[in-house]
Simulated scan of single mutants.
Amino acid sequence: MKVFSFTDPRENILIYSPWLLKKGSEIRLADIVNGKPQGKAIIAQLEGVNDRDQAASFIGWDVFIRHEQLPEAADGEYYWSDLIGLKVETIEGDQLGIVDSLLETGANDVIIVQGERERVIPFIQGQTIINIDVEAGRIIVDWDPAF
């Protein structure tokens, strides 16, 4: 089956077995038998999926892995999933909201902060991102709250 991977590099999705497959409220566990990159996608064979019709039944399913399957992030590096939900405040203590999502823009990643309004803040550690404390659940930013 063809899989679109958001890992970096994209073929790393193949080292995280088993996968949690989810569609709506249905969740299945799937072990990877084989796989390889093909163009911008990954071709994967799952255990028990042996023909085209069985593979087609997984169209529209999302692939997840357990956080415990990921290698530990290096100092100063974070998984996006660890940042989502953190409170964001300025160095002056103004509350801006919480991290709703992150976006890759090419120049630099940005955090999307939902508060009284949506803010898009460049994720540049040491410049706009001053401190990240996952345990305390907050990010300190050098950002004008009016912007």
Score class of each variant (00 low, 15 high):
Ile130Asn: 05
Gly126Phe: 05
Lys87Gly: 01
Ser101Gln: 15
Asn108Glu: 14
Phe58Trp: 13
Val3Trp: 01
Val99Ser: 00
Val33Leu: 15
Ile130Gly: 00
Gln54Ile: 10
Leu102Gln: 04
Glu68Ser: 11
Ala146Lys: 01
Glu116Asn: 13
Glu68His: 02
Ile121Gly: 03
Val88Asp: 02
Leu96Ser: 02
Trp80His: 03
Lys87Tyr: 01
Ile13Pro: 09
Ile111Pro: 05
Ser57Trp: 03
Gln114Ser: 12
Glu92Val: 01
Asp51Glu: 14
Lys23Cys: 10
Asp8Lys: 00
Leu20Ser: 01
Asp144Asn: 15
Gly48Asn: 04
Ala44Asn: 10
Asp82His: 03
Glu92Gly: 04
Leu21Gly: 02
Glu77Pro: 00
Gly97Asn: 07
Ile59Trp: 00
Arg66Ala: 09
Asp133Thr: 09
Asp144Val: 07
Ile112His: 08
Glu11Ser: 04
Ile65Trp: 04
Ala146Val: 05
Leu29His: 09
Thr7Ile: 03
Ser101Pro: 13
Ile124Ser: 05
Ile124Phe: 00
Glu104Thr: 11
Ile129Lys: 07
Gly115Leu: 12
Ile139Met: 05
Val110Ile: 13
Val141Trp: 06
Gly97Met: 05
Arg10Thr: 14
Ser25Ala: 12
Val110Glu: 06
Lys40Phe: 12
Val88Tyr: 06
Asn34Ile: 03
Leu14Gln: 06
Ile124Met: 06
Glu118Ala: 07
Glu104Arg: 03
Ser17Asn: 02
Ile65Glu: 07
Phe64Trp: 15
Ile13Leu: 15
Arg117Gln: 15
Ile112Met: 12
Glu26Ala: 08
Lys22Met: 09
Asp62His: 05
Leu29Glu: 15
Gly115His: 11
Gly97Ala: 07
Asn50Pro: 03
Met1Tyr: 12
Val3Met: 07
Leu83Cys: 12
Asp75Ile: 09
Ala41Ile: 14
Asp109Phe: 12
Ile15Arg: 13
Arg10Met: 14
Glu26Lys: 04
Ser5Tyr: 06
Glu77Gly: 01
Val120Asp: 01
Lys2Asp: 14
Arg138Thr: 08
Gln127Thr: 11
Ile98Asp: 00
Gly76Ser: 09
Phe4Pro: 00
Asp142Thr: 00
Gln69Val: 07
Glu104Tyr: 09
Ala136His: 06
Ala73Met: 05
Gly60Asp: 12
Trp61Tyr: 15
Val33Arg: 14
Ile42Cys: 02
Met1Glu: 15
Glu68Val: 03
Glu135Asp: 09
Ala55Val: 14
Tyr78Arg: 05
Met1Cys: 11
Leu96Pro: 02
Ile42Glu: 01
Trp61Val: 14
Leu103Gln: 12
Asn34Pro: 01
Gln45Ala: 08
Val3Arg: 01
Gly76Pro: 08
Ile13Asp: 10
Ala44His: 08
Ile130Pro: 01
Asn131Pro: 00
Thr90Pro: 08
Arg119Asp: 03
Asn12Trp: 04
Asp109Arg: 13
Val120Ser: 04
Val99Arg: 00
Ala73Tyr: 01
